[in-house]
Design a binder for these strands. Structure first.
Lengths: 228, 228
DNA sequence: AGAATAGTGTCTCTCAGACAGTATCTT
DNA sequence: AAGATACTGTCTGAGAGACACTATTCT
């Protein structure tokens, strides 16, 4: 016997941090579709002969031109009416990359936008997120993607201090202040400098390079790099 | 255009603790199938008009007769050849329940077994798990289920001290020693009593009932219950 | 020299582990 | 009374936050 199957998709929340704000790359949905005009996470369908991870890599490359980015699985979303057109189960992934790898091609593409993620943090647990872009203001998010973005932030905050996810958002060379700003952007509150430095250095995931940043003003900080 | 779709399934790792051992409920696969004779997590296919959560509840009820159990999503497994018969993507769930809710019907069913989960803990990160049952000895695990069981243990250990998952494995009334034994079974090492008691009581997830266990020998301990 | 940030030393508070002691129940 | 376990008080050491101090570079 055979049943009708759901369609399987992979969506990717491509996250970066710039200027103290957590940002997510979103694509504008075609006007012809039911969700036309709304913004969504980049996604694609999973074919029978392609693994979930390969599908995620294909989506990142085809839709936004990114290769070799950090990817991890976030969660599967399978509510019946999350997509108004047909039943789609989405295996959503989380991708992290430093802001300097967001190429000019992405910025110039009118179908893409890099939106600030805003969380309604009343209630302590966090619910859905909203997205605000410089070009388009408050965005209309398609499907359950506002809810997914809320889960993304929860995951990041949860993993931040027992894993190395924070480092994925840093460029090859960075100062400890850069690292601290990224952690603060994810957590949504300030951290004390000495404690942050101690914790990060004690974990031995980064090492000093001996070179210093080229300072536009005042004392330049030492540049660090990731180990391995 | 249309592509061949993977088939979507839900598998459930139904976990309990008894006698200091972490245990998982496994079903014997039909001898006719390619994986015949091996043991596997209970699972079922996701139909187009049923949500992931409902599918998980259906599997728990139909395959092992359990309703109202704690369920959370673990991970989606989608390697191409994880099922030798056809491409199946499994949204695997984690279910927790106290040992006293494993009914006699489950124990008596020869198609089911409650196996001890053994982890090869060399390498610090943990890899696949093996399963050993009293009746059948070391079990042959179907598909990628040995790997999934390893992930189950990692998830449990990771969540144990910032969430209430440990309490899901306890019966309605329990002593602090019961709670400690369950935590020790998950973590795989002993804990010190005063520290464990302080941490558990400070979180205010449990409260004393004023009654004591009916002791077979020596001083009886106070019984606690979960709040809410 | 002055300003602003980089980087460090120290104090304190909290919390978990260890240990030892007291309390209570059964035989 | 003896024995075994429940439960608790206290010491200690590790670690994070707060604060203040020194160091370095640019204008």
């Amino acid at each position: 016997m055979s049943y009708l199957k759901p369609t399987l998709a992979v969506d990717i929340a491509i996250i970066t941090v710039n200027d103290g704000n957590l940002k997510c790359l979103l694509v504008k949905r075609d006007d012809a579709a039911d969700v036309g005009g709304a913004w969504a996470l980049p996604g694609g369908f999973v074919h029978e002969d392609v693994s979930l991870e390969s599908t995620a890599k294909r989506v990142a490359l085809e839709k936004v031109g990114l290769a070799d980015i950090y990817l991890e699985q976030l969660c599967a979303y399978g509510s019946l009416n999350r997509d108004p057109r047909k039943r789609v189960v989405s295996i959503t992934h989380l991708a992290l990359l430093p802001f300097d790898r967001i190429g000019k091609a992405v910025i110039a593409n009118p179908e893409l936008t890099l939106a600030d993620i805003k969380i309604d943090w009343t209630g302590e647990l966090g619910g859905p997120a909203s997205a605000v872009s410089n070009e388009h203001g408050l965005l209309d998010l398609a499907f359950d993607h506002a809810h997914i973005l809320g889960d993304v932030v929860k995951r990041l905050r949860g993993k931040l201090d027992y894993s190395a996810v924070g480092l994925e958002l840093l460029p090859a060379l960075f100062t400890l202040r850069d690292a601290q700003e990224i952690h603060e952007a994810i957590l949504g509150h300030g951290l004390t400098k000495p404690a942050f430095r101690r914790k990060l250095l004690d974990r031995e995931l980064i090492k000093p390079t001996g070179t210093k940043e080229v300072a536009s003003a005042f004392r330049p900080a030492e540049l660090y790099e990731k180990v391995n």
